[in-house]
């Protein structure tokens, strides 16, 4: 039996500013994940470091510890590799005043 894998788009052409996060995603069937963030437009202002968050229930979130330095230029891609994440995953970031980014967030799952 071949392993399952899926590419999911968690955010597409969404402008992030202030507190931003992807919609909750269930990935419990997967053993490993890679999260990519691509800037679709030139980022504005100082770009924060995003974090991976996990959750017991999809409603209460906790910092998993993995960090992604968000792209500084249009079409730049950053990524993070993940294991041992349980079921729920999301990407979150807090932008300083005046900063924003238009992002495409892609999740690769394999299990």
């Amino acid at each position: 039996m071949l392993r399952e894998n899926i590419t999911a788009i968690l955010a597409r052409n969404e402008t992030w500013k202030g507190h931003a996060a992807t919609e909750p995603f269930e990935a419990g069937w997967a053993i490993e994940a890679v999260v990519f963030v691509r800037a679709l437009k030139p980022p504005v202002g100082a770009q924060p470091t995003a974090r991976i968050e996990i959750s017991p229930d999809g409603m209460h979130w906790v910092d998993e510890g993995t960090r992604l330095a968000l792209p500084a230029r249009q079409d730049e891609v950053c990524f993070a590799r993940l294991r041992g994440f349980g079921n729920w995953l999301r990407v979150a970031a807090d932008f300083p005043d005046g900063a924003e980014a238009c992002v495409l967030v892609t999740l690769h799952l394999k299990g």
Binding site: A8, L10, A11, G28, L40, D57, H60
Partner: peptide, 23 residues
């Protein structure tokens, strides 16, 4: 550009495999 996508579609996200996990 993706900006030409109608808002009704822009809100869509990927379906997922769920065990219907409840808190």
């Amino acid at each position: 550009t993706l900006d030409t996508m109608l808002p009704g579609y822009a809100q869509h996200t990927s379906a997922m495999l769920s065990t219907l996990p409840h808190w």
